[in-house]
Nucleic acid binder design. Structure first.
Lengths: 333, 333
DNA sequence: TTGTAAGCGTTATCAC
DNA sequence: GTGATAACGCTTACAA
């Protein structure tokens, strides 16, 4: 059942059928009615492939992320998909893992499906070496690329991100102001966002006269228990700290677990903060002070910017917004 | 740049170019070499739309779920996408929310994109009334449908799920055996999986001589704090319970929070269990005893079954597997 | 307001 | 092995 069949039965040309299909105003109500009726009767469905071939678009956007099961990335995917759908675009999802080679390969997979644009969610997509990023620049020649929560300067590549440096800076300042004098910073990776957060911590320490701040920043093992043990070991070496600024909520949970296991009072003699305002931050007891980096806002904005690009408008290469500190029970702030 | 251009430059016909493109063995090495060289020189890329039109498939699978930010659904999406990609299929994601109307609408969206099959993740897709499920049967006439963690009998619809009833039954039995005499069951919704879990609880209570078990099952408010307050209120009415069997980890976290707020010892005079073996179950302190319902296994199996369907093989309409109780610190088991 | 006809870039079926 | 040529089902000038 295609538009030829419909056109015959309705006694019109295929062009008219197509016009009805695309809601053209240049069809008489009567004709339109008739055509729709015939379509209805025959359970006609439009062939997306044929339409795509003509229009050279399938109104589909590719979403790349390292791991859709990550609680933060998952929420970003959710919001992106919702906004895209509102605008009539479908979402093609691809989880790349954390290796450059796979990222390149899966990006090709999406491009080969002729997506109209790409969203890269998470700052791990931007490598330090320009050479390793060249595949992105190459891809950007075909479709606009949006990097969410990461940044990279190149033609047809747009970045949108929370000012993580500023958030951690303010958070650390508040923690120091509220009585802590020996903060430590805990992180997992130093991708773009990771580096910015670390900068925020270091800068806050410096401006508050904390000695050798970089010796107070620690890379932590990935899982909750391991990270908790790591802190216990650190404390056992005699290294003193009275505040843990964690780069994400999961790491903050580890700190809470460490505190509970070693009998330290939170926030009494150990303040703890997380990042992302995820469900994890309220699952722990006490509930964790964290930073809302406005995933929903980021996604809504990103989609809105994409639509502007499609409309041929000129948009800024980078859009940065501020986060919001959510004070809870693990701090005095 | 299309195959006509290539064929001209290479001095062959478009059919030969197409054969090279599709790795047909019926091309002489020399010709193949030449064609590939011309393609390379011109940076030729195949047009996915045209190919799809010819083949009538784009090797794309639609994944429908209520909410991709849900920690359980997110992991399912992750595993599904990974497995599909391994088999050369892309994934189109659509989050439907929890309303029937939207589910129908978004299912149409995916069908209109000509996906080759549909995965419905979560038992909320199956309605109680057969009439409300008719849209699924209709869709199944076009493409095979897989329901993950739910069940429905119809042609071209396949179900794959964990035996949640059995898991909760065993869990409840163990809890009762370990000393609790007044268990309560906490749940959020009574979709297919929800009903099965409740049955497991009720059956276990009956076989252990617990009086009027159905008066011991409670629907809870959605968010963590509200559910915790709900339990406090319940206790305040004088209703006694010494074990909380929760239908998911988040609800179990609420129970832990209630216990901590009201000074009850866990598991001393209150045992608590969750479900899903999610990150939430280890974020809480004490870590929560839970059921691993094997999301990864479910997804890997589902994709494998789909590939068998594509191969024209006959597969069972329903596949059910057992869960695995993970004993942690909130129980005596 | 409607119709004709030329694309869109492949794959598939023949014949040679 | 290779080449013509007909689908595939739609959009869209251009004509009427």
């Amino acid at each position: 059942m295609n538009i030829y069949d419909i056109s015959k039965q309705a006694g019109v040309s295929i062009a008219t059928v197509s016009r009805v299909l695309n809601g053209s105003p240049k069809v008489s109500p009567k004709t339109k009615e008739k055509v729709l009726q015939v379509m209805e009767q025959n359970g006609y469905v439009l062939n997306a492939f044929a339409r795509s071939l003509g229009l050279n678009t399938m109104r589909t956007i590719g979403i790349l992320c390292a791991d859709a099961s990550d609680i933060y990335l998952a929420s970003a995917i959710y919001f992106l998909e919702r906004e895209l759908r509102k605008n009539g675009y479908a979402s093609m999802l691809c989880c790349t893992g954390y290796h450059l080679e796979e990222r390149q390969q899966y990006l090709q997979l999406l491009l080969s499906r002729n997506v109209d644009a790409l969203f890269l969610v998470g700052s791990n997509f931007v490598e330090k070496s320009a050479l390793k990023n060249s595949y992105l620049k190459e891809a950007a020649k075909k479709v606009p690329i949006f990097i969410l929560n990461g940044s990279m300067a190149a033609k047809n590549i747009y970045s949108i991100l929370c000012d993580d440096r500023q958030s951690i800076l303010e958070l650390t300042n508040s923690i120091l102001l509220s009585g802590s004098a020996s903060p430590i910073y805990l992180y997992r990776s130093l991708n773009y966002s990771g580096k910015r957060k670390l900068e925020g911590f270091l800068d806050a320490c410096k401006s508050n006269g904390i000695a050798s701040p970089s010796s107070r920043a620690f890379p932590c093992p990935p899982n909750i228990m391991q990270a908790s043990v790591f802190l216990q070991d650190l404390a056992d070496t005699g290294f003193y700290f009275d505040a843990c600024i964690a780069s994400d909520d999961e790491l903050a949970v580890s700190a809470v677990k460490y505190a509970q296991a070693s009998g330290r009072q939170v926030p009494g003699n150990l303040q703890i903060t997380g990042y992302n305002a995820s469900l994890l931050s309220v699952c722990s007891t006490p509930e964790i002070t964290t930073v809302d980096n406005r995933v929903e806002f980021m996604c809504v904005t990103a989609v809105s910017l994409l639509m502007q690009v499609f409309d041929g408008k000129d948009i800024p290469a980078q859009t940065m917004f501020t986060g919001n500190i959510i004070s809870r029970a693990t701090t005095h702030i």
